[in-house]
Simulated assay, not measured.
Amino acid sequence: MSTSVQPQMNREYMIGFLQALLQVPSPSGFCMEIMKLIRKETIKLGYELEMTPKGNAVITIPSASEPTGKVIALTAHVDTLGAMVRSVKPNGMLRFTPIGGYAMHTVEGEYCLIHTRDGKAYEGTVLSTKPSVHVHSDVREWKRDEENMEIRIDEPVMTKEDTEKLGISPGDFISWDPRTRILSNGWIKSRHLDDKASVAALFGLLEWFKREGKSPVNTIKIILSTYEEVGHGSSYIPPDITELIAVDMGAIGDDLTTTERDVSICAKDSSGPYDYEMTSKLIQLAKREDIAHAVDIYPYYGSDASAALRGGSNIRAALIGPGVHASHGMERTHADAIVNTAALLIAYIMENEKEEVL
Protein backbone atom coordinates (compact mmCIF):
# COMPACT_ATOMS: atom_id res chain seq x y z
CA MET A 1 0.00 0.00 0.00
CA SER A 2 1.42 3.42 -0.98
CA THR A 3 1.80 6.28 1.47
CA SER A 4 1.32 9.83 0.22
CA VAL A 5 4.21 12.22 0.86
CA GLN A 6 2.04 15.30 0.38
CA PRO A 7 1.03 15.86 4.04
CA GLN A 8 4.71 15.87 5.01
CA MET A 9 5.63 18.83 2.81
CA ASN A 10 6.73 22.02 4.58
CA ARG A 11 4.36 24.53 3.01
CA GLU A 12 5.55 27.45 5.17
CA TYR A 13 9.17 26.86 4.22
CA MET A 14 8.43 26.88 0.49
CA ILE A 15 6.31 30.03 0.59
CA GLY A 16 8.84 31.83 2.79
CA PHE A 17 11.67 30.97 0.43
CA LEU A 18 9.58 31.96 -2.58
CA GLN A 19 9.03 35.39 -1.02
CA ALA A 20 12.79 35.78 -0.57
CA LEU A 21 13.44 34.74 -4.20
CA LEU A 22 10.90 37.21 -5.56
CA GLN A 23 12.60 40.15 -3.86
CA VAL A 24 15.93 39.62 -5.65
CA PRO A 25 16.12 41.10 -9.18
CA SER A 26 17.24 38.48 -11.69
CA PRO A 27 16.50 39.20 -15.35
CA SER A 28 18.22 36.73 -17.69
CA GLY A 29 21.98 37.31 -17.59
CA PHE A 30 21.81 39.30 -14.32
CA CYS A 31 21.51 36.51 -11.77
CA MET A 32 24.59 37.06 -9.62
CA GLU A 33 22.73 38.19 -6.49
CA ILE A 34 20.04 35.54 -6.62
CA MET A 35 22.70 32.86 -6.96
CA LYS A 36 24.19 34.10 -3.70
CA LEU A 37 20.81 33.47 -2.06
CA ILE A 38 20.59 30.03 -3.71
CA ARG A 39 24.09 29.11 -2.49
CA LYS A 40 23.37 30.28 1.07
CA GLU A 41 20.14 28.26 1.30
CA THR A 42 21.75 25.18 -0.25
CA ILE A 43 24.57 25.23 2.31
CA LYS A 44 22.03 25.75 5.09
CA LEU A 45 20.28 22.55 4.02
CA GLY A 46 23.58 20.68 3.89
CA TYR A 47 23.95 20.04 0.17
CA GLU A 48 26.76 20.74 -2.30
CA LEU A 49 26.42 23.32 -5.04
CA GLU A 50 28.61 23.76 -8.10
CA MET A 51 28.51 26.63 -10.57
CA THR A 52 28.92 26.05 -14.30
CA PRO A 53 30.95 28.54 -16.35
CA LYS A 54 27.66 29.79 -17.76
CA GLY A 55 26.34 30.65 -14.29
CA ASN A 56 23.93 27.77 -13.72
CA ALA A 57 23.87 26.04 -10.33
CA VAL A 58 24.01 22.27 -9.93
CA ILE A 59 22.93 20.88 -6.54
CA THR A 60 23.56 17.18 -5.92
CA ILE A 61 21.54 14.89 -3.67
CA PRO A 62 23.89 11.93 -3.40
CA SER A 63 22.61 8.38 -3.66
CA ALA A 64 22.30 6.25 -0.55
CA SER A 65 24.44 3.41 -1.89
CA GLU A 66 26.74 2.53 -4.74
CA PRO A 67 25.88 4.47 -7.90
CA THR A 68 23.21 2.76 -10.01
CA GLY A 69 24.28 4.48 -13.21
CA LYS A 70 21.00 6.37 -13.33
CA VAL A 71 21.10 10.12 -12.65
CA ILE A 72 17.82 12.03 -12.51
CA ALA A 73 17.95 15.79 -12.98
CA LEU A 74 15.33 18.35 -12.05
CA THR A 75 15.71 21.79 -13.59
CA ALA A 76 14.05 25.15 -12.95
CA HIS A 77 15.13 28.67 -13.79
CA VAL A 78 15.88 31.61 -11.54
CA ASP A 79 16.05 34.13 -14.38
CA THR A 80 13.07 36.31 -15.18
CA LEU A 81 11.74 38.72 -17.74
CA GLY A 82 13.30 42.17 -17.73
CA ALA A 83 14.91 44.66 -20.08
CA MET A 84 18.13 46.42 -20.97
CA VAL A 85 18.86 50.05 -21.74
CA ARG A 86 19.01 50.43 -25.52
CA SER A 87 19.75 54.15 -25.60
CA VAL A 88 19.51 57.37 -23.64
CA LYS A 89 17.06 59.73 -25.34
CA PRO A 90 17.65 63.48 -25.81
CA ASN A 91 15.03 64.21 -23.11
CA GLY A 92 16.89 62.08 -20.56
CA MET A 93 14.44 59.17 -20.74
CA LEU A 94 15.50 55.65 -21.65
CA ARG A 95 14.61 53.53 -24.61
CA PHE A 96 14.77 49.87 -23.64
CA THR A 97 14.93 46.48 -25.31
CA PRO A 98 13.05 43.52 -23.81
CA ILE A 99 14.71 40.51 -22.19
CA GLY A 100 12.36 37.56 -22.66
CA GLY A 101 9.10 37.26 -24.56
CA TYR A 102 6.38 39.48 -23.15
CA ALA A 103 3.76 41.78 -24.61
CA MET A 104 4.75 45.41 -24.13
CA HIS A 105 1.39 46.41 -22.65
CA THR A 106 2.03 44.10 -19.68
CA VAL A 107 4.82 46.37 -18.39
CA GLU A 108 3.23 49.74 -19.12
CA GLY A 109 3.02 51.69 -15.86
CA GLU A 110 5.36 49.29 -14.06
CA TYR A 111 7.98 50.47 -11.59
CA CYS A 112 11.51 49.29 -12.30
CA LEU A 113 15.15 49.50 -11.28
CA ILE A 114 17.95 50.48 -13.64
CA HIS A 115 21.14 48.64 -12.60
CA THR A 116 24.32 50.43 -13.71
CA ARG A 117 27.58 48.64 -14.38
CA ASP A 118 29.21 50.40 -11.42
CA GLY A 119 26.70 48.91 -8.96
CA LYS A 120 24.18 51.73 -8.60
CA ALA A 121 20.41 51.31 -8.95
CA TYR A 122 17.91 53.99 -9.92
CA GLU A 123 14.13 53.79 -9.79
CA GLY A 124 12.01 54.43 -12.83
CA THR A 125 8.60 53.87 -14.44
CA VAL A 126 7.71 52.34 -17.80
CA LEU A 127 5.45 54.61 -19.88
CA SER A 128 4.39 54.99 -23.46
CA THR A 129 5.77 58.01 -25.26
CA LYS A 130 2.22 59.39 -25.19
CA PRO A 131 1.35 58.74 -21.53
CA SER A 132 -1.40 61.29 -20.81
CA VAL A 133 -4.98 61.50 -22.08
CA HIS A 134 -4.90 65.21 -21.16
CA VAL A 135 -2.10 65.85 -23.63
CA HIS A 136 -2.34 63.30 -26.43
CA SER A 137 -5.60 62.80 -28.33
CA ASP A 138 -4.51 59.42 -29.75
CA VAL A 139 -3.16 57.90 -26.53
CA ARG A 140 -5.68 55.04 -26.60
CA GLU A 141 -4.77 54.03 -30.14
CA TRP A 142 -1.03 54.53 -29.69
CA LYS A 143 0.64 51.20 -30.42
CA ARG A 144 2.61 49.72 -27.54
CA ASP A 145 5.73 48.81 -29.51
CA GLU A 146 9.30 49.08 -28.27
CA GLU A 147 9.92 52.33 -30.12
CA ASN A 148 6.81 53.86 -28.50
CA MET A 149 7.84 53.02 -24.93
CA GLU A 150 10.32 54.65 -22.57
CA ILE A 151 11.44 54.71 -18.95
CA ARG A 152 11.07 57.83 -16.84
CA ILE A 153 13.90 57.99 -14.29
CA ASP A 154 13.12 59.22 -10.77
CA GLU A 155 16.00 61.65 -10.77
CA PRO A 156 16.26 65.32 -11.87
CA VAL A 157 17.09 64.59 -15.49
CA MET A 158 15.98 66.68 -18.46
CA THR A 159 18.66 65.87 -21.03
CA LYS A 160 20.76 62.97 -22.25
CA GLU A 161 23.77 64.46 -20.48
CA ASP A 162 21.88 64.58 -17.15
CA THR A 163 21.16 60.85 -17.39
CA GLU A 164 24.67 59.95 -18.46
CA LYS A 165 26.06 61.79 -15.42
CA LEU A 166 24.19 59.27 -13.25
CA GLY A 167 26.27 56.52 -14.83
CA ILE A 168 23.36 55.11 -16.82
CA SER A 169 24.29 53.88 -20.29
CA PRO A 170 23.29 51.37 -22.98
CA GLY A 171 23.67 47.79 -21.80
CA ASP A 172 22.51 48.42 -18.23
CA PHE A 173 20.00 45.85 -16.95
CA ILE A 174 16.45 46.77 -15.95
CA SER A 175 14.36 44.73 -13.52
CA TRP A 176 10.61 44.95 -12.92
CA ASP A 177 9.09 45.51 -9.49
CA PRO A 178 7.65 42.07 -8.57
CA ARG A 179 4.72 43.59 -6.59
CA THR A 180 4.49 40.41 -4.52
CA ARG A 181 1.39 39.73 -2.43
CA ILE A 182 1.12 36.52 -0.40
CA LEU A 183 -2.41 36.21 0.99
CA SER A 184 -3.53 34.29 4.06
CA ASN A 185 -5.89 32.17 1.93
CA GLY A 186 -2.98 30.73 -0.06
CA TRP A 187 -3.15 32.93 -3.17
CA ILE A 188 0.18 34.33 -4.35
CA LYS A 189 0.28 37.11 -6.93
CA SER A 190 3.53 38.50 -8.22
CA ARG A 191 5.63 38.96 -11.28
CA HIS A 192 8.22 36.26 -11.85
CA LEU A 193 6.29 33.28 -10.43
CA ASP A 194 7.60 31.93 -13.72
CA ASP A 195 9.76 30.32 -12.56
CA LYS A 196 10.54 31.19 -8.96
CA ALA A 197 7.47 29.24 -7.78
CA SER A 198 9.11 26.12 -9.23
CA VAL A 199 12.45 26.94 -7.62
CA ALA A 200 10.63 27.15 -4.27
CA ALA A 201 9.11 23.71 -4.96
CA LEU A 202 12.57 22.24 -5.62
CA PHE A 203 13.87 23.68 -2.36
CA GLY A 204 10.82 22.20 -0.66
CA LEU A 205 11.99 18.85 -2.03
CA LEU A 206 15.51 19.47 -0.67
CA GLU A 207 14.11 20.45 2.72
CA TRP A 208 11.99 17.27 2.80
CA PHE A 209 14.99 15.00 2.12
CA LYS A 210 16.99 16.82 4.80
CA ARG A 211 14.22 16.80 7.41
CA GLU A 212 13.26 13.17 6.81
CA GLY A 213 16.89 12.03 6.73
CA LYS A 214 16.34 10.23 3.45
CA SER A 215 18.67 9.64 0.53
CA PRO A 216 17.60 8.46 -2.91
CA VAL A 217 18.98 5.28 -4.47
CA ASN A 218 19.62 7.21 -7.68
CA THR A 219 21.73 10.36 -7.67
CA ILE A 220 19.56 13.46 -8.07
CA LYS A 221 20.90 16.68 -9.60
CA ILE A 222 18.99 19.94 -9.38
CA ILE A 223 19.93 22.41 -12.10
CA LEU A 224 18.98 26.06 -11.63
CA SER A 225 19.44 27.91 -14.90
CA THR A 226 19.98 31.60 -15.61
CA TYR A 227 19.11 32.02 -19.32
CA GLU A 228 15.85 30.09 -19.75
CA GLU A 229 13.77 33.14 -20.71
CA VAL A 230 16.03 33.71 -23.70
CA GLY A 231 16.03 30.08 -24.79
CA HIS A 232 19.27 28.40 -23.71
CA GLY A 233 19.04 27.93 -19.94
CA SER A 234 19.86 24.22 -19.68
CA SER A 235 21.08 23.70 -23.23
CA TYR A 236 24.11 22.09 -21.58
CA ILE A 237 23.61 19.58 -18.77
CA PRO A 238 26.13 17.25 -17.09
CA PRO A 239 26.70 14.22 -19.36
CA ASP A 240 25.90 11.63 -16.67
CA ILE A 241 22.22 12.64 -16.56
CA THR A 242 19.82 10.05 -17.98
CA GLU A 243 16.44 11.60 -17.13
CA LEU A 244 15.48 15.26 -16.90
CA ILE A 245 12.30 16.77 -15.50
CA ALA A 246 11.89 20.45 -16.29
CA VAL A 247 9.96 22.17 -13.51
CA ASP A 248 8.31 25.26 -14.95
CA MET A 249 4.98 27.01 -14.62
CA GLY A 250 1.84 25.52 -16.12
CA ALA A 251 -0.11 27.87 -18.39
CA ILE A 252 -3.82 28.56 -17.84
CA GLY A 253 -6.54 29.54 -20.33
CA ASP A 254 -8.25 28.70 -23.62
CA ASP A 255 -8.91 24.95 -23.71
CA LEU A 256 -6.30 24.13 -21.03
CA THR A 257 -7.43 22.34 -17.88
CA THR A 258 -4.72 23.32 -15.39
CA THR A 259 -5.78 25.56 -12.49
CA GLU A 260 -3.75 27.65 -10.05
CA ARG A 261 -4.00 24.86 -7.45
CA ASP A 262 -2.78 22.03 -9.69
CA VAL A 263 0.54 20.64 -10.69
CA SER A 264 0.52 20.78 -14.47
CA ILE A 265 1.88 17.82 -16.44
CA CYS A 266 2.75 18.88 -19.97
CA ALA A 267 2.49 16.13 -22.58
CA LYS A 268 3.63 18.31 -25.52
CA ASP A 269 4.85 21.85 -26.12
CA SER A 270 6.36 23.74 -29.07
CA SER A 271 9.38 21.39 -29.05
CA GLY A 272 7.18 18.31 -29.47
CA PRO A 273 6.00 15.50 -27.20
CA TYR A 274 7.78 14.67 -23.95
CA ASP A 275 8.91 11.16 -23.07
CA TYR A 276 5.93 8.80 -23.05
CA GLU A 277 7.00 6.59 -20.16
CA MET A 278 8.06 9.44 -17.88
CA THR A 279 4.90 11.43 -18.56
CA SER A 280 2.70 8.37 -18.04
CA LYS A 281 4.42 7.57 -14.75
CA LEU A 282 3.95 11.15 -13.51
CA ILE A 283 0.24 10.96 -14.35
CA GLN A 284 -0.12 7.57 -12.63
CA LEU A 285 1.69 8.78 -9.51
CA ALA A 286 -0.42 11.95 -9.31
CA LYS A 287 -3.56 9.80 -9.42
CA ARG A 288 -2.23 7.27 -6.92
CA GLU A 289 -1.08 9.89 -4.42
CA ASP A 290 -4.26 11.94 -4.90
CA ILE A 291 -2.28 15.01 -5.98
CA ALA A 292 -4.37 17.65 -7.75
CA HIS A 293 -3.08 17.73 -11.31
CA ALA A 294 -3.95 18.30 -14.95
CA VAL A 295 -2.47 17.17 -18.25
CA ASP A 296 -2.19 19.80 -20.94
CA ILE A 297 -0.52 20.75 -24.22
CA TYR A 298 1.26 24.11 -24.59
CA PRO A 299 1.78 25.03 -28.26
CA TYR A 300 3.49 28.39 -27.52
CA TYR A 301 5.81 27.15 -24.78
CA GLY A 302 9.35 25.81 -24.48
CA SER A 303 11.25 24.59 -21.42
CA ASP A 304 14.74 23.89 -20.19
CA ALA A 305 14.11 20.27 -21.15
CA SER A 306 13.48 21.48 -24.70
CA ALA A 307 16.78 23.37 -24.59
CA ALA A 308 18.66 20.31 -23.31
CA LEU A 309 17.23 18.09 -26.05
CA ARG A 310 17.99 20.64 -28.75
CA GLY A 311 21.48 20.96 -27.29
CA GLY A 312 22.08 17.28 -28.11
CA SER A 313 21.55 15.66 -24.70
CA ASN A 314 20.81 11.93 -24.97
CA ILE A 315 18.11 11.91 -22.29
CA ARG A 316 14.49 11.19 -21.57
CA ALA A 317 12.62 14.33 -20.56
CA ALA A 318 9.36 15.47 -19.00
CA LEU A 319 7.79 18.75 -17.91
CA ILE A 320 5.69 19.61 -14.86
CA GLY A 321 5.08 22.69 -12.72
CA PRO A 322 2.63 24.76 -10.68
CA GLY A 323 -0.30 26.28 -12.52
CA VAL A 324 0.22 30.03 -13.06
CA HIS A 325 -2.42 32.40 -14.42
CA ALA A 326 -1.56 35.30 -16.75
CA SER A 327 1.96 34.08 -17.47
CA HIS A 328 4.46 36.77 -18.55
CA GLY A 329 2.05 39.33 -17.12
CA MET A 330 0.68 39.93 -13.63
CA GLU A 331 0.91 36.32 -12.57
CA ARG A 332 -0.93 34.42 -9.85
CA THR A 333 -0.71 30.94 -8.36
CA HIS A 334 -1.71 29.22 -5.12
CA ALA A 335 0.44 27.64 -2.44
CA ASP A 336 -1.33 24.34 -3.16
CA ALA A 337 0.19 24.22 -6.66
CA ILE A 338 3.72 24.61 -5.28
CA VAL A 339 3.14 21.94 -2.65
CA ASN A 340 1.60 19.60 -5.24
CA THR A 341 4.57 20.08 -7.56
CA ALA A 342 7.09 19.20 -4.84
CA ALA A 343 4.99 16.23 -3.72
CA LEU A 344 4.79 14.78 -7.25
CA LEU A 345 8.56 15.14 -7.73
CA ILE A 346 9.24 13.29 -4.47
CA ALA A 347 6.75 10.58 -5.43
CA TYR A 348 8.59 10.15 -8.76
CA ILE A 349 12.01 9.96 -7.12
CA MET A 350 10.86 7.49 -4.47
CA GLU A 351 9.07 5.38 -7.06
CA ASN A 352 12.31 5.16 -9.02
CA GLU A 353 13.94 4.11 -5.77
CA LYS A 354 11.46 1.22 -5.41
CA GLU A 355 12.13 0.16 -8.99
CA GLU A 356 15.89 0.09 -8.40
CA VAL A 357 15.45 -2.00 -5.24
CA LEU A 358 13.25 -4.46 -7.13
Rank of each mutant, 00 (worst) to 15 (best):
V247E: 03
M1V: 15
S87H: 05
E164P: 02
G272E: 02
R144H: 14
E243N: 10
D262N: 01
N185K: 04
I315M: 02
A286W: 05
F30Y: 10
R310Q: 07
S215A: 11
V357D: 05
G231R: 04
K165F: 14
N185E: 07
D177Y: 12
D194Q: 00
A305L: 00
L205S: 12
P62S: 01
A292C: 06
R95I: 12
A201I: 11
S190L: 07
I223N: 00
S4M: 08
H136Y: 13
K89W: 10
A318W: 04
L22D: 13
K89Y: 15
Y348L: 02
I153N: 04
R95G: 15
I291W: 05
E207V: 15
T180V: 01
N218S: 11
T125K: 14
N218I: 07
T106Q: 01
C266F: 01
E12M: 02
I174M: 11
K40T: 15
G119R: 07
V230P: 10
P299A: 03
S65V: 08
T259V: 12
V85M: 03
S215Q: 09
G312I: 05
G323S: 03
S4C: 01
A251D: 10
R95E: 13
E277T: 07
D145Y: 09
D304A: 00
F17N: 10
A201Q: 06
K36T: 15
V247P: 03
S271N: 09
V357P: 08
D304F: 15
A347K: 06
K54H: 15
C112N: 05
P53H: 02
L21W: 09
D255K: 00
D177Q: 00
V247A: 11
T68E: 09
Q284R: 08
W187A: 12
P178W: 07
M158R: 11
I222G: 06
Y348N: 05
I265R: 07
S264K: 05
D138K: 00
S235M: 02
P27F: 10
R140E: 15
K214E: 12
E48P: 02
S264P: 03
I38R: 11
T42A: 04
E12S: 13
P239Y: 13
I34M: 09
G329W: 09
G253S: 04
H192P: 07
S4P: 13
I153T: 00
E33F: 04
L18K: 07
V133S: 11
Y274F: 15
Q23F: 07
Y276I: 10
S87P: 02
N56S: 11
A335I: 04
T42G: 04
E161S: 12
L206T: 10
E123T: 04
S26W: 10
I349G: 04
P98Q: 08
T129R: 02
G119T: 01
K287N: 13
K196L: 01
G82H: 08
V157W: 12
K54A: 15
E66C: 00
I188V: 08
I43H: 06
P238E: 01
V58G: 09
L21R: 03
P7F: 08
K189F: 14
S280N: 05
G16F: 13
L244P: 00
G233C: 12
E164K: 00
I291V: 14
M14H: 10
G100A: 13
A121H: 11
K120W: 07
E108P: 11
D275A: 01
M104V: 05
H77I: 01
S270N: 11
R191W: 03
L113R: 00
L49D: 08
I61F: 14
